[in-house]
Design a protein around this nucleic acid. Structure first.
Length: 287
DNA sequence: CTTCTTGTTACTGA
DNA sequence: ATCAGTAACAAGAA
């Protein structure tokens, strides 16, 4: 999300929305399903922020719209001219994941059209994601209900230790809980715990002071590196230039299979389930 | 055919 | 009140 946010910010800050085409009303929240275009047309994008995995678009007339991509959502920006079929776009830095072909495609749910005819496509195969209109008050409440962003200075070892106290369930479950820390998903949870040397099934309240320090450090380190690599994508990732720049090749445990050799110690990787999510770890490197 | 998948929330029962 | 487990959302890949 941070990769997309940073890329998008360069493209659409200050641009005025000339129109919005809603192809699937299911993804529209916070206003009447038919009123998204009415609400947004004529507004300019003042700023793009992010709370964990939730992207916030500040409107110059007041209020925000939020976009959550959930599992399979995409935000794809294209400059004014339509693209040649099969070719790569000229819009540097934009993220294109190769699902459904060039937009608009059958997974395109909403299209934002800007005054200069550039467009932002919200695609989502599984329809879990959403676009939501909120006022300042509602955004504050959403912020309040979430933990500090994983990359923010508020996410400290002291904070984490405090937040974990009394939680008897697995540490990985807590890392995935957006109310404790916002922005960590299944892939990075596994990678963070591997880098911390902590087993994902350790009870959260049994994590030592040193352990929480290791987790906070690993979180910053892993996320920073992943952002440097322009993020991790499940499969078929390319950026707009067709480059494969990604974090997937740096993954140490996520995506490995039961019994495969750990890259660090050569021991056997274990595959378990935590919080109903596939979980990989190395029992030798992680205690 | 079955099981799995980048996320979150509502519900159940303890 | 809090916690654990599960289903649900929907579509596809393996």
């Amino acid at each position: 999300m941070e990769t997309i946010r940073a890329g998008l910010k360069e493209k659409i800050i200050g641009k005025k929305i000339a129109g919005v085409e809603v192809r699937n009303k299911k993804v529209v929240q916070g206003c009447h399903k038919n009123d998204l275009a009415k609400r947004l047309t004529g507004e300019s994008i003042d700023d793009i922020g992010r709370i964990g995995k939730l992207m916030t678009f500040k409107l110059d007339g007041g209020g925000y719209f939020l976009i959550h991509l959930k599992m399979t959502g995409q935000l794809i920006y294209t400059a004014g001219e339509r693209l040649l079929a099969g070719g790569h776009s000229d819009n540097k830095g934009t993220i294109i994941e190769d699902i459904g072909g060039e937009p608009p495609n059958k997974y395109t749910r909403v299209i934002f059209i800007f005054e200069d005819e550039s467009k932002l496509y919200f695609n989502d195969m599984r329809l879990f994601g959403y676009i939501r209109i909120v006022d300042d008050q509602e955004l504050e409440k959403i912020k309040k209900d979430m933990g500090p962003d994983a990359l923010s200075p508020e996410f400290t070892a002291e904070y984490l230790r405090q937040a974990l106290s009394g939680r008897k369930s697995e540490i990985k479950k807590s890392l995935l809980d957006q109310k404790i820390v916002a922005g960590i998903g299944n892939i990075y949870a596994d990678e963070i715990l591997f880098a911390s040397g902590i087993r994902p099934d350790r009870p959260a309240n049994k994590i030592s002071k040193k352990g929480s320090e290791a987790i906070v450090e690993a979180t910053r380190d892993i996320l920073r590196k992943a952002i440097d690599c322009k993020g991790t994508t499940f499969r078929n990732y390319t950026d707009a230039n067709g480059d494969k720049g990604n974090f997937s090749s740096m993954l140490k445990v996520y995506g490995r299979k039961e019994g495969e050799k750990c890259y660090e110690c050569g021991g056997a990787i274990r595959a378990i389930r935590i919080n109903n999510r596939g979980t990989k770890y190395c029992p030798k490197c992680q205690r």
